[in-house]
Design a protein around this nucleic acid. Structure first.
Length: 426
RNA sequence: GGAGAGGUGGCAGAGCGGACGAAUGCGACGGAUUGCUAAUCCGUUGUACUGGUUUAUGCCGGUACCGAGGGUUCGAAUCCCUCCCUCUCCGCCA
């Protein structure tokens, strides 16, 4: 949620920033509603002041014995004001509702270092790690490796849940577990995060707070009976852990990391990149979330990027880092880096991590504030989220990158302890 | 699913129609004092919205907020209704 005061103060700046990622017509509408609202509020509050003064006077006179309970002078006048107040309250309420629903549909403003424009071609490659691995044989796609090793079973998953769900078996299931255990340990032991295991279903307010709703409702799984959403990312429960709270500034920065499955309907995406583990309705992910002071959030973003990269470095996977352009960053984000790994079997770069600084956008929506340690007042902390990293695609990249000519897969060293000493999938 | 209890400031907890934005305690902050890992004393201590003013974090007003929404009343933390949430017990269940 954008700061209406900021927009009021400098509407052109807001429009210029938003124009870089899309439509700005909402801003004018917002200002119009805002002006109308404030105009009525001023009148309303003046009327209430008159009424309050009247009641106070009555109370005093009764106390001093000048008036009996039943006697009420100027009753008609005060009733007329009451009616006015009631009407104005309704108007304000309606304007508030309009303002709220409008402001919730406006995305965050891109940071000034973010490139303008759209399409994935505008994204800037800012870093590349390891050369793409060359094979002496034709590397297979992961679904063929998985089938041969009997560790991936898509037909059974389809039997259970329909298309685009994964089913891992035997060593394959263990590899999944090994991967997220390795990631969690890395972030907890070396990067200073607190491990959280949150609910996988959350209330509607949570989804509004982080910005998935109202725009993306169609992409979410909803349990209607209870109005609970399956989490599309652990970012939602992690950020919402402090929804509606006023934190002590001194607890910052807060660093949380969680493993959760992520549920996404991926509505309308059938037909594109849907084979194997590339795009599935349920995947595992380890996600980091940080709450920081506003002045240090961009420093934290770079740090978080490094922590995501570290996962891929230790797994020995070639990757590249993209700085997303204004139209490609997500709704709540001001600046986003994506990390893509190379999958040699399907010969594609695949997004496995997205690291974003949402500045105070989510904090405003979710009403998360910080009390200043010195002096009065509160401020909105900045929230950051970063994958560290998404499993299914990392998993497939491992199978494809480390496959051998005989169909076996030699696991990266860091995973061996987590696999109970198993070095090769065969 | 059944029965009961309860939701008040950072926390604990009083208030149960008018002097209540709310006692008291704890905590926090500022100060005084004391040489000993502290005690004592004094003071301060919410948030949001909004008008004015200022270069301004500011200052001066106003309004709202005691789980949420509605009702009664000149006046509601307090009375009435609806909803939500939490806790305890029972049932069911991994």
């Amino acid at each position: 949620m954008l700061d209406i005061k900021l927009i009021r103060k400098d509407p052109e700046a807001a429009k210029t920033a938003l124009a870089r990622r899309g439509d700005t017509s909402a801003i004018d509408k917002l200002l119009l509603l805002d002006a109308e609202r404030r105009n009525i509020i001023t009148q309303l509050e003046q009327n209430r002041m008159v009424k309050n003064a009247y009641s106070k006077k009555i109370a005093e006179q009764i106390r001093e014995g000048l008036l009996k309970e039943a006697q009420l002078p100027e009753k008609e006048a005060i009733q007329a004001i009451s009616q006015k107040i009631e009407a104005q309250e309704k108007e304000v309420e309606e304007l508030n509702a309009q303002l709220d629903s409008l402001v919730l549909t406006i995305p965050n403003m891109p940071h000034n270092t973010v490139q303008s424009g759209g399409s994935s071609k505008t994204n800037k490659i800012v870093k590349e790690y390891l050369a793409i691995k060359q094979f002496s044989f034709n590397p297979l796609p992961h679904w063929e490796i998985g089938e041969y090793l009997k560790i991936l079973d898509f037909p059974t998953a389809t039997l259970l849940s329909g298309s685009n769900f994964p089913l891992y078996k035997g060593q394959g299931a263990k590899l999944e577990r090994a991967l997220y255990s390795f990631m969690l340990d890395l972030h907890v032991k070396e990067h200073g995060y607190q491990e959280i295991s949150p609910p996988y279903m959350v209330k509607r307010e949570c989804m509004l707070g982080t910005g998935q709703l109202p725009k993306m409702e169609g992409d979410m799984y909803l349990c209607e009976e209870d109005d609970l959403f399956l989490v599309p990312t652990a970012e939602v429960p992690l950020v919402n852990m402090h929804r509606g709270q006023t934190l002590d500034e001194r607890v910052l920065p807060l660093n949380y990391v969680a493993y959760t499955p992520c549920f996404r309907r991926e509505a309308g995406s059938y037909g594109k990149d849907t084979r194997g583990l590339i795009r599935i309705h349920q995947f595992d992910k380890v996600e980091m979330v940080k709450f920081t002071r506003p002045e240090s959030s961009y420093e934290a973003l770079e740090q978080m990027l490094g922590q995501s990269e570290e996962v891929l470095k230790r797994l020995g996977l070639p990757y590249r880092v993209l700085e997303l352009c204004a139209e490609e960053i997500s709704f709540a984000s001001s600046k986003t880096y994506d990390i893509e790994v190379w999958a040699p079997g399907i010969k594609q770069w695949m997004e496995v991590a997205s690291i974003s600084n949402c500045e105070d956008f989510q904090a405003r929506r979710a009403n998360i504030r910080c009390k200043k340690a010195a002096g009065k007042g509160t401020f909105f902390p900045h929230t950051l989220n970063g994958s560290a990293v998404a499993l299914a695609r990392t998993y497939l990249a491992i199978l494809e990158t480390y496959q051998n000519a005989d169909g076996t897969v030699t696991l990266p060293d860091v995973l061996v302890p987590y696999m109970g000493g198993v070095k090769v999938l065969q």
